[in-house]
Design a protein around this nucleic acid. Structure first.
Lengths: 218, 218
DNA sequence: AAAAAATTTAAACAAATGATTAAATCGCTG
DNA sequence: CAGCGATTTAATCATTTGTTTAAATTTTTT
């Protein structure tokens, strides 16, 4: 009964993940499959057997490399959370760029990221509903946001406007279409134009609208 | 082996649900509990035993009244979907009200409804991701929306603006804060003011912003 | 090439979970 | 109040599902 190395050292074989496109390493295959299945179906609806099948590996290998479904999920969740918030925070915290600049960047880069990860929002939001604590674990979004340059700039630009209200509008306009894609995607006119094209156009629209809102005196 | 009446007639005992506040009827107790648990945890994460316990009834009663978890869920899902879309569609389809009027009504009534059902959006969106077909089953939202008076009015008001883009903005500004409440709710300034108060203020903000967007020439 | 270590596999286990059954209880009607 | 149907309960079943085990295979080391 030799204790498997993979459980002793957290990163078993492939110490050099980045170099050499080794998605072919077993661990990476499992992780990739887990990312796909967890993201599509959520934690509760995902069977470890689904992941194993998707990865084309024996079921027991999952536990050999990641000890448990829960542990594997935590790794994926952490990674996806970084992806969800890591894109925005650096833009909002930048001390040099103007407010308008931040809006342009966020609109463009965030839509770009969501185009490549369309089901990220629903995944994050639905997993977060039962475990709201998970956010702080990975990124202290709250603390960072509050004290960000972005908030400061909003207050200066329009003291009447609560930064949170603006933030909700901006993110809502960007993220909601992806979260509600199952609904919007069924509209004939969306299928005609194509969802991707719509989101491409949307970059300019949202940044324009956001700036308009910023200056409105409601 | 007598076949239980509840399974023969779809509505077993309480033919007069509406009259006489009979939440105390067993069927209603189960349905209420199911609504709560399903909405909070989603279909996959919900155990029939959770529902039974929440309803204070024996587990077997659930199957006696609703035959299966799946069947019970479908009833709840249908009901929640009606609630989600039933609030908007009548407003958008109204032939007499102006565009501005529709925006005001939608902003106010939808936020009202969501204040009373804060976890409805995440529930709908996350359940819809795996079964997008469910929408058509309950309401042909797509068809209705496309041909609605609302869309027509948008096109007339601003031919440059794609109605879908505007719809996504409006709904995003209204619905997203609720879907992302686990995140926003952690912000100190949100906890200070209170989420409910913020949403109350938001009615006016969104309707104002939406009208501004409508007239912007981007 | 032999030995050791690491990886992979097939099989099985234990707990969870949706569903069923048969008996008990309740409530109404003749 | 006897009898009958409707409702409720306790117990159990069958399947699913996360995990483990021990043996087989592959890879690395000596």
């Amino acid at each position: 009964m030799s204790i498997p190395l993979a459980q002793v050292f957290q990163t078993p074989i492939d110490f050099n993940e980045k170099m050499s496109g080794k998605d072919s390493s077993t661990e990476q295959k499992i992780k990739e499959a887990a990312r796909k299945v967890f993201t599509m179906k959520g934690y509760a609806a995902t069977r470890t057997r689904d992941i194993a099948e998707e990865a084309g590996i024996n079921l027991a290998l999952l536990n050999y490399y990641f000890r448990s479904k829960e542990k594997l999920f935590e790794e994926i969740m952490m990674e996806r959370m970084q992806q969800m918030f890591g894109t925005i925070l650096p833009i909002l915290m930048d001390q040099k760029s103007t407010l308008e600049n931040k809006i342009d960047l966020l609109s463009e880069h965030y839509i770009d990221m969501l185009q490549e990860n369309p089901d990220l929002p629903i995944f994050i939001l639905s997993e977060l509903r039962e475990h709201p604590g998970r956010i702080q674990q990975s990124i202290p979004v709250a603390a960072i946001l509050e004290g960000s340059k972005f908030f400061q700039q909003i207050k200066e630009h329009n003291p009447k406007l609560h930064p949170i209200q603006f933030m909700m509008a901006l993110l809502g306009m960007v993220v909601f279409p992806f979260a509600a894609r199952p609904i919007f995607g069924q509209l004939p006119s969306v299928q005609e134009i194509g969802f991707e094209k719509l989101m491409e156009d949307r970059k300019k629209l949202v940044s324009g609208w956001a700036k308009t809102i910023l200056n409105s005196t409601i």
